[in-house]
Amino acid sequence: MVWPEDDARHREVRAALHAWAREIDAAPYPPGLDIDALLARHYASLHEEPEMALVVTTTAEVSVLAVRGELDLTGSRRLRSRLADEVGLGPRALVLDLTGAAHCSARGLALLLEATGEARAAGVPFAIAGCVRVVRRAIDALGMDQALQLHATTAEAIEWLGLVERMKALR
């Protein structure tokens, strides 16, 4: 990872984030909140290969992994690695946004099932949002829609994940 340490704007943002973290130190936030690690993930996501771009956006409530491009064999390997990293961080919830997916191979479809199972095993609420027509058609044709939590938009997926968490709290 190449950090833009010499970039004045980066230093400004980093200092502001550290100051903010000190201010909210008394407020509950996810364990392991590491601003440097979050910035590293952000910068890494900006420098992905052009065939498939993966952009991670993280808030206190949810991490969203947006995919743009081809979800083929090569793209699936990269996405699998990134999803494993995100699940390993233990976010409150994880949404895979496929709005920008132009194609999804059989390996990509298998990855969606694997990711759902791995997130469930790790106790991370997981949903898939924005399946474009070509991806949704393949999911429906294979009957995978019963095994995957699919939502039209990222906002809808986040709302659904929030409802699931509230229902768990009522038990």
Rank of each mutant, 00 (worst) to 15 (best):
V2L: 14
V2P: 00
P4V: 04
P4T: 06
E5W: 10
E5M: 07
D6I: 01
D7C: 13
D7F: 11
R9Q: 11
H10T: 11
H10W: 14
R11A: 15
E12Q: 14
E12H: 11
E12V: 08
V13I: 15
H18N: 10
A19D: 14
A19S: 10
R22D: 11
R22V: 06
R22I: 00
R22W: 03
E23M: 07
E23N: 09
E23F: 00
I24W: 05
I24Q: 11
D25L: 09
D25N: 05
D25T: 07
A26C: 01
P28K: 03
Y29K: 05
Y29H: 14
P30K: 10
P31R: 10
G32P: 12
D34N: 14
D34S: 12
D34M: 06
D36G: 10
A37R: 15
L38Y: 12
L38E: 15
L39E: 12
H42Q: 10
Y43N: 04
Y43F: 15
A44S: 11
S45Y: 01
L46P: 08
P50E: 09
P50V: 07
E51I: 07
M52Q: 14
A53T: 13
T58Y: 06
T59K: 08
A60Y: 03
A60F: 05
A60G: 07
A60W: 03
V64C: 04
L65R: 01
L65F: 04
A66I: 01
A66E: 09
A66F: 06
V67K: 06
R68N: 09
E70K: 10
E70F: 11
E70L: 13
L71R: 01
L71F: 05
L73N: 09
G75F: 07
S76Q: 04
R77S: 10
R78L: 12
R78W: 05
R78E: 11
R78A: 13
S81A: 15
R82Q: 12
L83E: 05
L83K: 05
G90L: 08
P91Y: 02
R92N: 11
A93S: 15
L94K: 00
L94S: 00
L96A: 03
D97A: 08
T99E: 11
T99A: 15
G100M: 06
G100A: 02
H103E: 06
H103G: 01
C104H: 03
S105C: 06
R107D: 15
G108C: 07
G108N: 07
L109R: 02
A110E: 14
A110K: 12
L111D: 05
L113Q: 08
L113V: 15
L113I: 13
E114Y: 08
G117T: 07
G117I: 02
A122N: 00
A122D: 04
G123L: 00
F126K: 01
I128H: 02
R133C: 04
R133G: 14
R133M: 07
V134C: 04
R136Q: 13
R137E: 15
R137M: 08
A138W: 08
I139V: 15
A141E: 14
L142K: 00
G143T: 00
G143A: 06
G143K: 03
M144G: 09
D145K: 11
D145Q: 12
Q146M: 04
L150H: 02
L150P: 01
H151W: 10
T153V: 02
T153F: 10
I158C: 13
L161S: 02
V164M: 07
E165K: 08
M167A: 13
K168H: 14
K168G: 13
K168S: 12
R171L: 07
R171W: 03
R171M: 05
